[in-house]
């Protein structure tokens, strides 16, 4: 049992990172920290894919004369794409945070929600009057 757990330590690591990332996304009110959490979450998936591609005793898949076992290169390539996507997401997320900070003057979710609620109330009162 213990052996099985230790033998798959990288999967445990993936799950650990995944949960940390998700937890940050859910629990933090700071918009920047949320994006950080999102990044950790995505990183765990990169690790998962890289783990999949690894073949025991395999080397990098470069054609040489010697007969060798190769690791599966495909997941690595896939994850390159996913990393690019992750970078784009992060950049866009931060861009939005900057804009939010410019117009609300805060990057704390609670403050922003309070501002929006106040605006809503004003709108409702106007509509009723």
């Amino acid at each position: 049992m213990l052996d099985a757990i230790i033998a798959h330590y990288n999967y445990w690591l993936v799950i650990f990172l995944m949960m940390i990332g998700l937890y940050i996304v859910i629990s933090r009110g700071n918009l920047v920290k949320k994006i950080v959490g999102l990044n950790i979450f995505q990183t765990s998936v990169f690790l998962l894919y890289i783990t999949l591609g690894k073949v025991n005793g395999g080397t990098a898949p470069i054609l040489t004369d010697k007969p060798e076992t190769f690791s599966n290169p495909l997941p690595h390539v896939l994850i390159l794409t996913a990393i690019v996507v992750g970078v784009a997401t992060t950049a866009l997320g931060f861009a939005l945070v900057v804009r939010i900070r410019e117009s609300y003057g805060s990057i704390e979710e609670d403050d922003i929600l309070a501002t929006e609620r106040a605006e809503d109330e004003i709108a409702v009162n106007e509509a009723l009057s």
Partner: peptide, 29 residues
Amino acid sequence: RRALTAAYNYLVLGTVGATFFVIGVGLLY
């Protein structure tokens, strides 16, 4: 200006969703 927070929330949830999808695809692979 609430379009900004709406987009931000969609970004966070959308990314979580897409990442879940890619985890699933990874497991199948």
